[in-house]
Structures are given as structure tokens and as C-alpha cells.
Computed example of a mutant assay.
Amino acid sequence: MTTYVWDYLPEYEKERDDLLNAVDTVFSSGRLVLGESVRGFEEEFAAYHGVRYATGVDNGTNALKLGLEALGVGPGDEVITVSNTAAPTVVAISGTGATPVFVDVRDEDFLMDTAQVAAAITPRTKALLPVHLYGQCVDMAPLRRLAEEHGLRILEDCAQAHGARHHGQVAGAMGDVAAFSFYPTKVLGAYGDGGAVITSDETVDANLRRLRYYGMEKTYYVVRMPGHNARLDEVQAEILRRKLRRLDSYVAGRRAVARRYAEALGDLSGPGGLRLPSPAPGNDHVYYVYVVRHPRRDEIIERLKSYGISLNISYPWPVHTMTGFAHLGYGVGALPVTEKLAGEIFSLPMYPTLPEDVQDKVIVALREVLESFR
């Protein structure tokens, strides 16, 4: 049997009764769209993050796009972000009509190099979009200082950082707006698509609620602003309500797997060897993915296939090198750290219900491959 980086079936077996009850709760409610489950999840998700408002939407990409639009980002504006991210981060910026502007990431933790942001700011810059990557947070203090100095807004991309903290502050509570994805693989994942945007700004929240519902307000027929059909599904909302109560236990499970990997593989790390992830200063890592690094990455992945292990790369193609973003004018060499990482990083299996025998299988196989290089 092939081992993959993620599998939802062990979780489903463990939580099956509650998940099916969530579906029955919605089907028995008499309200299938924007009902009690969406409202309840929004209130509980906002409370978890210590903010005033949450707006459920249909996916993480639209969470980013609507979050930017609610901040007033549009054609002619620039948004500063990173290229070492999932393409939806940049697709969302482009979708508003704004122009993505890239800065590089740090070699030690792959997060936005905030020291490069000031030089990227122009008169057209409207917002900063840090990506809390792989399960830990960008250093937000420098970004907040720059935002205040230049009159910019901050949208946190929290798709990979549910429950992560930075100096005690939960991811999503450090900017003006934060966007979340509930794609099934996430730390807090639905059983289908879903997303949310959180804020403590009443005006921004009002904009978000209009934007997700055609631009309408309260009544179906009156459009107040150009909008979208981007509502969170009632069934997914009810599932997420149940799972939100278990979010901290999911994080604890991921951290336990990460500790086991670190203990079993730590002696193989070092210059030119396997580099394991570790929390940046002030961060509480939630290990959405367990991203390691090795200069012979491609050979390792290929050889592990013979052990029945199939691994992912997050991400093999930096966004700025994709043909769909060639018009932005970033050639190869523009972001050297990002480009180097793209050839070296890969992800080990990581989810809270990952069985120990599967962890052992990965550890033993990876050790054998790495030791053969010596």
C-alpha cells in the first residue's frame, strides 16, 4: 500500500458519528443556505481568534479576493506578497485587478523576508499580504510599522496556519483582515471547500457580507455594490463548527508527529544534509505540512517510491516563474532564495491521525536513503 502525505479516512473513522450528525442537523433544519450553521460557525470562529467578525465564504481563494476587495484594493493598486506560496494567493490579488509585487523569503524558515518590504513599496502600494506558511507566522511587527508609516492595509493569508501563534497572538488577529481556507487538507479542514475572512473592522465586515452575496444587503433584489456568489455552504459550516472544537487537539496531534520526526531524523541534519523545520523566534508552529530540505531532493523522492511512499513538494514552481504570471516581468534569478528552495524542499506525511507504524515506515525508508549518500 502506498503511503501519501495526507489521508482523511483515519479521521473520518474516528469522528464519523459526529460528522454524520452534523449533516443530519442541517438537512433537518429547514434552511440549507446561510442558516444557523453558518451564523454559528462565524460567531465561534471569530471568538476563537479574539476578533469581532467572521464571514464564511466558499473557498480560501475567494476569502483572499473578497478580503482585498473589502479593503478597497482594485485596479491600479499593488499588493506586496511572496512567490513561495500556493498560486491562489497571487491569483486572488490578480483577480481584484491589482498587481502582485514579490519579495523574497528567508532561507532559514521560508517565510516572507520582511527586511525587503520597505524597498518594494511604491505610491501604488495599497496592501501587504504576508503568508503564514507551512504552519507558522511571519514576523508581523515590521509589517505593522510599515503599514502605519505608509498608510497601508494588511491581509494575513492564514490558509496554512489555523491555530498558530506569534508572540502569543493567534494567526489572523495581527492585521486588518485575515483569510482562511478550509480545504480538506488544512489544519481545520472541511469535507469539501470552504473559507472565511475575519476582521474587527465593522465597515470591512459589512463590505464582506455584501461581496459574498452578489453585493446585496438583507434583501435579495437590491445590489449595493458589485459582488460575487461566494457563500459558505451550510453543511460545511456545521461540520466546521464541530471540528473547530477539536482544533487544538488537531494541532497537538501534528506537533506530536513533528516531535517524532525530529527525534528520529535529527542526527541526519546538518550542512549539505537533511534540514528539518523548526519554529522561528516567537512562533508556535502547527505543522500544517512538515517541510524538509535536501540538495538531492528529487533523487530522494524517486527512491522512496520503491518503498511505497509518495511525497509532495510545496512548492516546486515559484509563482513568479509560472507562465501565467510572466507579464509581471520577474525572470529567473529575481528571487534567489525562493528559487533555490524550489529545488530542495519536500513534505513528509503529516496529519494528526497519522498512524505510528506509517511514521515508522517513512522514518526507516528515509534514513536508509539518506545513509546511502554517505
Rank of each mutant, 00 (worst) to 15 (best):
G329P: 04
S306E: 15
E156G: 01
P184V: 04
M350W: 08
L335P: 14
C137L: 07
G215N: 11
V105P: 01
T199R: 03
R209E: 11
S278F: 08
A159S: 15
P10N: 00
G331S: 13
V131R: 00
A280L: 03
Q359H: 06
D201N: 15
L335D: 06
F325A: 06
P226Q: 02
Y288F: 13
V332C: 01
S28L: 09
L335W: 08
E44Y: 02
T321C: 00
N84W: 11
Y307K: 00
A164E: 12
G95S: 02
R52G: 15
I363K: 03
G168I: 09
L32V: 11
E156V: 01
V51L: 06
V26G: 00
R224T: 11
E43F: 01
H327L: 06
T3A: 05
R31I: 11
E238G: 01
V91F: 06
P316H: 09
E299A: 14
A365F: 03
L71K: 04
D298N: 12
R52Y: 09
A119R: 06
R210K: 15
P316Q: 07
Y220E: 15
A164I: 09
Y287R: 05
A262F: 04
G163E: 05
S347H: 03
Q236S: 13
Y351V: 02
T99N: 05
E217T: 08
P318D: 05
A98F: 08
V235L: 14
K218S: 14
G35Y: 03
V23T: 10
V319E: 13
Y213G: 08
Y48Q: 04
P88G: 10
M112A: 01
Y214D: 12
I198F: 05
H162W: 09
Y191S: 08
M322D: 11
L348E: 13
V251E: 14
E69V: 04
Y261I: 01
H327T: 12
Y4L: 06
T3R: 03
R145A: 15
L265D: 12
H294W: 05
Y221V: 11
E44T: 07
L244Y: 11
V364A: 05
Y213N: 14
D77T: 13
Y288D: 09
R144I: 06
S83I: 07
L274M: 00
T353N: 10
Y287D: 07
Y351Q: 07
L128T: 13
A342I: 05
E42N: 15
A47S: 15
C158L: 02
T55G: 07
T199F: 05
E344Q: 12
D104Q: 04
L68C: 08
E69P: 00
A87I: 14
F110S: 07
T25R: 10
P100L: 00
F45H: 08
T99V: 14
T122Q: 01
A334D: 09
